[in-house]
Structure formats: C-alpha cells, structure tokens
Amino acid sequence: MKLVYVFDAYCGWSHGFSGTLSEVASRHPELPVEVVSGGLFTGSRRVPIREFGYVQGANAKIAELTGAEFGEAYERLIADGSFVMDSEAAARGLAALRQAAPARAVELAVAVQRAFYVDGLSLSDPATYRKVAEDAGLDADAVVAAFEGAEGRVAAEADFHRSASLGVTGFPTLLAVDGDLIAPVAHGHANADEVDRQLATLRTP
C-alpha cells in the first residue's frame, strides 16, 4: 500500500494540511507517499486573485482550524488583488523539485506552499524554486532548468491527468492505494490521528 497526496500549491486548505501530511509521513515510514499536483487554477481560472473574493475569510478559517501560518509577505503580495495564481507553473516547480529528490516529495511540497503562503514568493518565479532547492540542499541550477524546460510542462500535465484518473474533485485529498483499491483517507481537513484511524480500518482484514 502507498499514499497518494493530491493537492494544489495555491490551495489554502492544502497549505493547512501540511502539518498533517508531514506527521502522517513521519509516523508511517513504511508507506511511500506520491505527491500529485491537482491543477486548481488553470485555463479560465487563471485570473487575478481579487476575483476570488473569499480568500482572506477562507484563510482565517484555515488558520483557526489547522494552525497554518499566513505570513505578512504573503498578505502584501496579494493585497492589491492583481496577483495571478497559476497552478500549471506551480506544478512544474513541484515536478522539478520532486525529480531532484523523489524520496523527499512531501517535504518539498510543504516547502513550496510555505514559500507562497509565508514568504510571499510567486510560484511562477524560477527564483522561488532556486531558493527552495538551495534550502533543501539540492542542485538549484538543475531544478530551475527542469522548471523552465519542456519536461516540466509534460510532468505538470501528467500530474493533472493522474489527479483526474484517481477521481479527485477537491484539494487536498489523501488516498490509500493498494493495487486496484483506491480509498480516500482524508479530504480537506483532518489531523494525523484521524488519518491513522482510516488507515487502521483499511488494514483490518
């Protein structure tokens, strides 16, 4: 069995789930975790953030429920409403980082979300992935090249198709996958104990 975590780097609820994801991964080193970008803000949804009027209110609720941090730099970035969240670029960035360190996908996904929601860095900017890569001790030049190259776009599209093929309709979604069995263990908001209870149910013969 493995876990598949489908999220979007520009999804506040996914940011709120970061603590749970990290805790579940640390509790279950025997379970590989595949991290997939879902593609929340693509195509016609790639518009200035002011068009999503619920952002600040939703973030306040996410912080209250999960303890997630929304930094001052992030608040400044989105203050005038003109910032455009581009999930395709974010997926390319995650894919580039994931390629550099496949076994650290959970840690890197959390770092990418922190770069946006705490440090106020655009996930369309190659410099963001350079910083995340450097902080993680990875080859930053290789990560930026992968982000900017054709393979990044291919990887992003593959992630979006993977998300759709798993039947995921909202983010974050954590799935347990065992052969043909695909079982949701968390959706939206859950703590590590709740995820553990779901996993225990699946492991009971």
Rank of each mutant, 00 (worst) to 15 (best):
L121Q: 00
S163I: 07
V185Q: 02
A109L: 07
L31C: 13
Y54G: 08
S22D: 14
A156P: 10
T128K: 02
G19W: 02
K61S: 12
D141K: 06
Q113S: 00
A95Y: 06
A109Q: 09
L94K: 03
K131F: 00
P32N: 11
M85W: 05
V177H: 14
R98G: 03
P48T: 13
E34S: 07
H187D: 02
V35D: 11
A96D: 05
I49L: 15
P102S: 08
G170D: 12
A89S: 14
G71W: 00
A100H: 08
M85V: 11
Q99H: 08
R76V: 00
L174Q: 02
V177N: 05
V185S: 01
P32H: 14
G19T: 01
G39L: 07
I49G: 01
V132R: 03
L174H: 01
L175D: 03
L3T: 10
T201S: 09
G93M: 07
R114S: 01
R153K: 14
G16K: 07
L77F: 05
E64S: 15
A146Y: 06
Q113C: 00
H189S: 11
R197C: 05
R197M: 10
I182Q: 15
E75K: 08
I78N: 01
P184M: 12
I49Q: 07
D159K: 04
A105K: 06
L77T: 07
S18D: 15
V33Q: 08
A127K: 08
F171Q: 10
A192R: 05
G179F: 02
R197G: 14
V33S: 10
Y74Q: 00
S124C: 13
R130G: 14
R27K: 14
V33F: 08
Y10V: 00
F41I: 06
T20P: 04
G81V: 15
T42W: 11
A89Q: 07
S44T: 14
D141Y: 04
V132E: 01
L40G: 03
S122R: 09
V106H: 10
K2T: 04
